[in-house]
C-alpha cells in the first residue's frame, strides 16, 4: 500500500515536470518529435532507477548526520551532509558514463535508440532533483527509493510524451506568429500543469490533513507581519 501510494504521488501529484518544473530544459528541447521524446523519456526512467537507490545508500551510510556510526562509535558525531551535492552529481555523472558503456557493449539496439540522449542526462535537473528530493523527503527504505526513482521517471516520460504529441499536432494550427514554437509550448505546459493539479486531492480524499497546515502558515505569516510592524514602529 505504501508503495502504491508513493507511486501515484510521484507520477501524478508531484509530477517532476508539472509540479516542480524539473527537467524543463530537456523537456522543451527534445519534445519536437514523439519518437525522440520516447527515447529521452525511457533513458530518464532507466537512469533514475539506478541513481536514486544508489544515492539513497550513499546518503544513509555516508552523508547523513551520524551515518558513519557503522565505522565505530567515535565516528558517530560526523555530519557530512554538506557534501551531498558533490557526491550526488559525481555518482550521477559516473553512472551515466558506466551505463552508456555497458549498454553499448551488451545491448547495441537499445544503445542505438537511447545512445545520443545518455550524455544529455548527466545534466538533466530531473535526475539530480530526484536524488535531492529523495533526501529532503526522507524516504524510508531502499525499496521505496527504487520505487520513487522509477515512478518519477515515469512521470517525466508521461509529460514529455504528451507535450511531444501536442507539438506535433499544433504545427498545423494557426498560432499567432510571435507565439509560435517556444511561447505556445510554455502556455500549453502551464495549462497541462493546471490539469495535473486536479490530482492534488486524490490521496488525501478531501484534504483533511491539508487544511490545518495552511491555517498554521497563515497564522505564522500574520505573527511575522505583526512583529515586522512592531519593529518598524520602533
Amino acid at each position: 500500500m505504501e508503495h502504491l501510494e508513493l507511486f501515484f504521488k510521484s507520477v501524478f501529484i508531484d509530477n517532476m515536470v508539472f509540479a516542480t518544473f524539473l527537467g524543463m530544459c530537456s523537456y522543451l528541447a527534445v519534445s519536437k518529435k514523439v519518437s525522440t521524446a520516447v527515447g529521452l523519456g525511457a533513458a530518464v526512467i532507466f537512469v533514475m532507477a539506478i541513481t536514486v537507490p544508489l544515492n539513497w545508500l550513499l546518503d544513509k551510510y555516508l552523508l547523513q548526520d551520524g551515518a558513519l556510526v557503522w565505522l565505530g562509535e567515535e565516528y558517530a558525531s560526523y555530519d557530512l551532509s554538506f557534501l551531498s551535492f558533490i557526491m550526488f552529481i559525481a555518482t550521477i555523472a559516473t553512472m551515466v558514463q558506466l551505463v552508456e558503456i555497458v549498454v553499448e557493449k551488451f545491448a547495441p539496439t537499445l544503445y542505438n535508440s537511447l545512445g545520443i540522449f545518455l550524455p544529455l542526462i548527466a545534466v538533466n535537473c530531473a535526475i539530480l532533483g530526484g536524488s535531492l528530493f529523495m533526501q529532503s523527503r526522507e524516504i524510508q527504505s531502499l525499496g521505496l527509493a527504487l520505487n520513487y526513482g522509477v515512478s518519477s521517471g515515469i512521470g517525466f516520460f508521461l509529460a514529455i510524451l504528451s507535450i511531444a504529441a501536442i507539438r506535433e499536432k499544433i504545427r498545423y494550427s494557426n498560432v499567432p506568429a510571435p507565439l509560435r514554437g517556444l511561447g505556445i509550448t510554455f502556455i500549453i505546459t502551464g495549462l497541462m500543469a493546471i490539469g495535473f493539479m486536479s490530482f492534488g486531492g486524490m490521496l488525501t480524499g478531501g484534504d483533511e490533513e491539508e487544511e490545518p497546515a495552511t491555517e498554521k502558515t497563515v497564522v505564522i505569516s500574520k505573527t511575522q507581519e505583526k512583529i515586522t510592524a512592531n519593529n518598524t514602529k520602533d
Binding site: F21, G183, F186, I187, G190, A193
Partner: peptide, 9 residues
C-alpha cells in the same frame, strides 16, 4: 506553479 509558465509564455 502553472502561472509561472504562462507568465514566461
Amino acid at each position: 506553479a502553472p502561472m509561472a509558465l504562462i507568465t514566461v509564455g
